[in-house]
Design a protein around this nucleic acid. Structure first.
Lengths: 191, 191
DNA sequence: CCTACCGATCGGTAGG
DNA sequence: CCTACCGATCGGTAGG
């Protein structure tokens, strides 16, 4: 195991940063080459192309979310605890993987087939299983009887801005932030 | 006043649709020309360039949000009612201006200076005034004592997914949707 | 509103 | 890891 990052990892991280800042389409291979102090053609000794990098970033993150969901589904937790742990994981990802999460969130649509469909299926699967947890919470009386799809998307998107926030470097830990957002979503802002 | 849309309006709407579906950078003037049944060069008889269209879309929407905020600020309403009306307006915009709202939300970063800074200032101003309403709600005991910036972004981003939802054509009116989301944000999902 | 065309830049390859 | 270069496509203009 190498102690230092491989050149490929360095390139992938620089790509994620550029994709976040300018978007996938507006990032050129020459921009990326300059960011890692190479000529554009030399990039291809480490990566096989622009879209392959996007693909790696998108699917790596998708798999991490699925792994965590697998874990939470099999644990003996109340529905409220499951939601809380999912929210916390989303926030940890948003704060620790700031750059690649943005590509994961916003740039996946530039994937081409068949990867695009594969990615959408993974996402749909994740959402359906998240929604199933919400539905069981409604059934057992933990949550209010609100359309589970509305609930799902409201929860998921209320977390999406976090990566944006964290770049400003406010002095709050991910765990604290997770607690505040979970409170808002679960108990609302009304006193 | 013309009863029919001007060609310029038709082009702008087609541009907003393409910017939403593929992103600003990945949309070519030839794509746009094809969408409105023209040759690329003919577009320039109606618009002055690609970025001018993005600029129009972004600032038109920014002004509409500011106008509504102006109205709500001067009305005699409780803080909870102000938040509720703001949320409803966001949702109405997301459902009635589906295409241009996405460009407004996601594609503004492709503006160049000085428009980019001007747009960011407008946005910052809107957020600060929204936050001031939240802060007065915390001060007068209407809302819980949660960091107002966290509250602001959680509210704003919990609405951002709506345009995405509405494309699927679910049988729910904007007003109903606004009520559900306001309930979640104000009272939480816990029974 | 079109044909014809501009220089610039794109992702990527050949060959060393 | 570089120089040199490829065909394709970009936003936009000239001229009618």
């Amino acid at each position: 195991m190498p102690l230092e990052k491989t050149k490929k990892q360095v390139i992938l991280e620089a790509a994620a940063t550029l994709f976040r800042d300018r978007g996938y389409s507006a990032t050129s291979m020459r921009d990326l080459a300059e960011a890692v102090d190479l000529k554009a053609s030399s990039l291809y000794n480490h990566i096989s192309g622009k879209e392959e990098m996007l693909k790696t970033i998108c699917f790596q993150n998708a798999y991490r979310f699925h792994e965590e969901l697998n874990r939470i589904e099999t644990e003996l937790l109340s529905t409220a605890e499951k939601i809380e742990q999912l929210v916390r994981f989303h926030i940890i990802m948003a704060t620790e993987e700031v750059t690649s999460i943005t590509s994961f969130n916003d740039e996946w649509r530039h994937l081409t087939e068949p990867d695009l469909s594969r990615f959408k299926e993974l996402r749909k699967d994740y959402e359906n299983r998240f929604k199933a947890i919400i539905e069981s919470g409604i059934k057992d009386g933990t949550f209010k009887d609100i359309d589970p799809t509305i609930l799902l998307h409201t929860i998921l998107s209320s977390i999406r801005w976090v990566y944006n926030w964290y770049r400003t470097g406010r002095p709050i830990t991910p765990t604290e932030l997770a607690k505040e957002i979970t409170t808002i979503v679960l108990s609302g802002i009304n006193r």
